[in-house]
Nucleic acid binder design. Structure first.
Lengths: 149, 149
DNA sequence: TTAAAGTACATAGCATGCTATAGTAAATAT
DNA sequence: ATATTTACTATAGCATGCTATGTACTTTAA
């Protein structure tokens, strides 16, 4: 096999993702939080109460994935769900007082990890990395659409 | 919350990884193969018989993860395990005839997906993406080591 | 040579992601 | 007004990743 894994974008990106998760989780663990909770924290940290659907879109995950994450967060006392008065199918999700008290620390932890990850990169390189990843995401999203539709 | 997800390396890399997986799986599905099988295919495609440990290292996953992947591949008739005559603890893993017949198609599928992912990038940009990802991986690996040791 | 330490693999238990499907409420069309 | 379609959530079942732990074989040290 001639394929060098260091020249495979899929392999490298997957690897990077799998090295990111423990780095962030290490810092979030003392807070009783994990990486999948982050998009929820960012979406609700301002005090909003939002339906699950909105959170799933914000996190770029499927609805059942967000449902499972919210179940765990509810179990752990991080979020609460209140029936949406204007829509009987929906609940409004918000952070508990406990979780709100952690928002600043969560924000700092993510800042730290991103800084650690990008520490060897110049500002230009950081910008380049984000731009290139975005291009890859767009290209693959179109690929998926083209093959489905 | 001031954190823009498009400026979070962790978020972007994770997202890229999650858009890669379906793209490759879409092409591998007709072959009865999935993305986690790839490192095994690349390691054993030449006809070698290797112990699980070597495969785990090649795939950059933990031992129990590789064990589970090999269990599924064995169940699906893609690999076989033979006791290692020189080490009673170990088995030698190799591709079945069925799997070997798919090696070329698997290789082509991964080439296709990588090309789709990188289609919007110049050669220079491709090189830059790999180099930047490698830097991020190295930085985070050191971060993990520093925080554990 | 025998005891201790190390190594390879298996298993348990969990988190996070997915698709497919079902149930109920809301919105739309006839 | 009712029937159809659409939308939001829940659930089931699976794949892939992890850590922690157990078991059995090898290797090393005393």
């Amino acid at each position: 096999m001639s394929l060098d894994r260091h020249r495979s974008a899929g392999y490298m990106i997957n690897w990077a993702a799998r090295v990111f998760t423990p780095a962030i989780d290490l810092r979030l663990k003392p807070l009783g939080i994990s990486s999948a909770h982050l998009p929820v924290f960012f979406a609700l940290g301002g005090g909003d109460a939002l339906p699950q659907k909105v959170l799933a879109v914000a996190a770029a995950v499927e609805q059942p994935t967000m449902a499972a994450t919210l179940n765990r967060m509810e179990r752990d006392g991080l979020i609460k769900r209140v029936p949406d008065p204007s829509d009987g199918r929906s609940s409004l999700v918000s952070l508990t007082k406990t979780a709100r008290a952690k928002v600043a620390a969560v924000s700092e932890a993510t800042r730290e990890v991103n800084e650690a990850a990008l520490s060897g990169l110049t500002d230009d390189e950081r910008g380049a990395l984000f731009a290139l990843l975005e291009k890859v995401i767009v290209a693959l999203s179109q690929d998926a659409t083209a093959r489905k539709g």
